[in-house]
Design a protein around this nucleic acid. Structure first.
Lengths: 150, 150
DNA sequence: GCTTGTTAGTTACAAAATCAACTATTACTC
DNA sequence: GAGTAATAGTTGATTTTGTAACTAACAAGC
């Protein structure tokens, strides 16, 4: 059975399916940046996300990070442990509710954050430059919509 | 330290970072459909992707699927094994190159494919309806660009 | 036709993600 | 204020992924 792989057998085309396209684009666009935080600091994706949240928003609890970034609490917990081991963040028990821990970056953590933030900014600029300014703005808006981040 | 979590400490905003937005949108948009192939057929993402490729393009080899969908060969191998166990696909050794296996869906596999394809079409329509026709078309174009699927 | 290199696909082991159960603390209710 | 429910966060068991090494078949050079 010889077959033309670009011809569809029906009206559905996998390569146009939004979840598929989104996943492919997300994976591809994560790769280059992932290389940096992985090779340079041995971090996982969840770890840089936690680091970025603290660097970007200041003091937060594990729960807040989880809610804001939609990361499951076990993943946050393990990422926080790793970042603490590496002395990138410090925990402070909340005095009014001792179940809660306030998390902040140490100065070492802030240094790492600033370094990675520069890389991230440059990379974002590079990605956005594939499109016109208006298109890029629209893209972000549409992605926020899809991610329910309105 | 009381802090406004919506205020940025600097000019970088994580929530505008394209790889982050793409990941969030991809995850969110995968969820609903994932529920269907997972709950209804106990499949993983790689498995439905392999199934969809075979359903969509007909006979393919594991290598072709991996290249087209950018899935690592070990993942493809495992997905093919699982789909074979469930009698959704059949392997046929290529007579001209006995390293190669031509994969095709069984009729059971085709039935599953058609069912999931309907769900996928409806879901894609639902997602696309968040935007105007032009916007949706532009979104797909931009995602293909980001995914290097031009 | 024999050595060397390459390719398709699998398997084994390590790393990471997921899910459920757990501890410790606070909140609610009577 | 004792008992029950709820919440923040952790830990352990299972599943899934990622990496590297492997087998089997083909290709190229000599």
């Amino acid at each position: 059975m010889t077959q033309d792989k670009s011809a569809k057998k029906d009206d559905f085309d996998l390569q146009e399916f939004l979840p598929y396209l989104l996943n492919r684009a997300a994976e591809e666009s994560s790769l280059e940046f992932q290389q940096v935080y992985k090779d340079r600091y041995g971090m996982l994706r969840t770890e840089w996300r936690v680091l970025f949240h603290l660097g970007n928003y200041g003091e937060m609890t594990a729960k807040e990070i989880g809610e804001r970034a939609k990361i499951h609490k076990t993943k946050v917990s393990r990422a926080v442990s790793k970042l603490e081991q590496r002395r990138y963040l410090a925990r402070n028990r909340d005095t009014s509710d001792r179940r809660v821990e306030q998390l902040t970056l140490t100065s070492a953590g802030q240094t790492v954050y600033r370094d990675l933030r520069l890389v991230a900014e440059a990379y974002d600029t590079k990605l956005a430059s594939l499109f016109s300014r208006d298109e890029a703005e629209l893209l972000r808006k549409m992605l926020r919509r899809l991610a329910h981040m309105n």
